[in-house]
């Protein structure tokens, strides 16, 4: 059975989706990813969907679920590289993926996770100091 590889990069996990997902594969990814976050104590998850040409409501729901689930485990999820046609379709479908962070590409996604991560650390290190 196909499996989507999950790469570990420091405190973050990186997933690149290269193929069109069918339901079982997407559900497996959700489970694998959550297990991996739990096991490694990752602080962020980056999902690159630049090669994905279709995101329907099922896939959208999986992405939303992953974001909510990782948040419970104290990790942020960033979805990067969504194609314009996919974004327009999702909006028309009525899915705006609230609660999922987004970035243009992997590099910016990583930078976003980095800032959120260091912000967290600062907050933890000095509670009195409000950096916002």
């Amino acid at each position: 059975m196909d499996k989507i590889p999950i790469l570990r990069m420091g405190p973050f996990l990186l997933v690149t989706i290269q193929i069109d997902l069918y339901d079982r594969l997407a559900l497996n990814l959700e489970t694998d990813l959550i297990n991996m976050v739990h096991k490694t104590g990752a602080r962020g998850v980056l999902i690159d969907i630049s090669a994905v040409s279709i995101v329907d409501s099922f896939m959208g729901r999986i992405l939303g679920n992953i974001a909510s689930m990782t948040r419970v485990l104290d990790a942020e999820t960033v979805v990067v590289g969504m194609q314009p046609a996919v974004a327009i379709t999702l909006i028309e479908l009525g899915l705006s993926l609230h609660g999922v962070h987004t970035a243009l590409d992997v590099e910016r996604g990583m930078a976003l996770l980095q800032t959120k991560h260091s912000l967290d650390d600062e907050m933890a290190g000095d509670d009195a100091d409000d950096t916002e």
Binding site: S53, I54, D56, Q83, P84, A85, I88, L93
Partner: peptide, 11 residues
């Protein structure tokens, strides 16, 4: 864009 919309609808 229309392609993506149609394929998503089919999906």
């Amino acid at each position: 864009v229309n392609q993506t919309k149609l394929v998503t609808a089919a999906s």
